[in-house]
Simulated assay, not measured.
Amino acid sequence: MYKRILVPTDGSDITQRAITTAISLAKLTGAEVFTISVKDPYPYSAISEMQPTLPQEFLDAQERVASRNVAAVKEACLAVGIPCTAHTVESVSVWEAVVDYAKQHGCDLIVMASHGRRGVQALLLGSETNRVLTHSTIPVLVVR
């Protein structure tokens, strides 16, 4: 069945449900969990006269948040004896980072959360989960 399960995390409450599901599946199938948190690259438009944000400060803050997110998944896995590999990655495109990571690490399932946006809201805000579903060649389990 599944041997390498990827669960991306952004630290949100909805993502916690996906993490719980991924850990439960891993426990049932004897799989290893992989987790990533995608960091935004520095937005050079953030430099302004009003409120300059230095690149290193921005990148450090992104790394702190992403590291905290994957550490929480790793701790949850270790608490129940599931092996977990955690990474933070920088990308302008979350869905591409998730799909690429899954391919590079031989994952055979992606477990992701969805906020369940529909209609105009989904069109305007987009959906990283929907893009992963569209572009992934491996199964994706969507948790709401």
Score class of each variant (00 low, 15 high):
30 G>L: 07
50 M>A: 14
42 Y>P: 06
121 Q>R: 08
120 V>T: 05
132 V>I: 10
22 A>I: 04
62 Q>K: 05
54 L>A: 12
52 P>E: 14
125 L>I: 09
144 R>K: 12
48 S>I: 09
27 K>M: 08
53 T>Y: 13
100 D>H: 02
61 A>C: 00
59 L>A: 10
121 Q>H: 05
25 L>N: 01
130 N>P: 00
26 A>M: 03
94 V>P: 14
112 M>V: 04
110 I>Q: 11
12 S>Y: 13
14 I>G: 04
87 H>M: 10
88 T>V: 15
126 G>C: 09
88 T>S: 13
32 E>C: 05
103 K>S: 09
62 Q>Y: 08
69 N>T: 02
78 L>D: 09
35 T>V: 03
2 Y>I: 01
111 V>T: 07
103 K>P: 01
80 V>L: 08
56 Q>I: 04
32 E>K: 15
54 L>H: 11
25 L>M: 04
39 K>H: 03
51 Q>Y: 13
95 W>C: 00
10 D>V: 02
55 P>V: 03
45 S>I: 07
25 L>D: 00
35 T>A: 08
58 F>H: 06
28 L>R: 04
38 V>M: 12
115 H>T: 12
47 I>G: 06
37 S>L: 01
62 Q>P: 09
116 G>A: 12
105 H>I: 01
5 I>F: 08
86 A>T: 04
7 V>E: 05
126 G>Y: 09
77 C>K: 02
99 V>T: 14
23 I>C: 03
138 I>A: 10
40 D>M: 14
94 V>S: 10
102 A>N: 10
26 A>S: 07
87 H>R: 15
84 C>Y: 05
58 F>S: 10
115 H>E: 15
12 S>I: 14
95 W>N: 00
100 D>C: 00
55 P>K: 09
128 E>L: 00
5 I>S: 07
134 T>P: 00
104 Q>W: 01
90 E>W: 10
85 T>G: 01
122 A>L: 15
126 G>F: 10
16 Q>N: 15
76 A>M: 15
83 P>W: 05
100 D>F: 02
76 A>T: 02
26 A>I: 02
138 I>W: 13
57 E>N: 12
112 M>K: 03
32 E>S: 11
40 D>S: 15
42 Y>H: 14
88 T>A: 08
52 P>K: 05
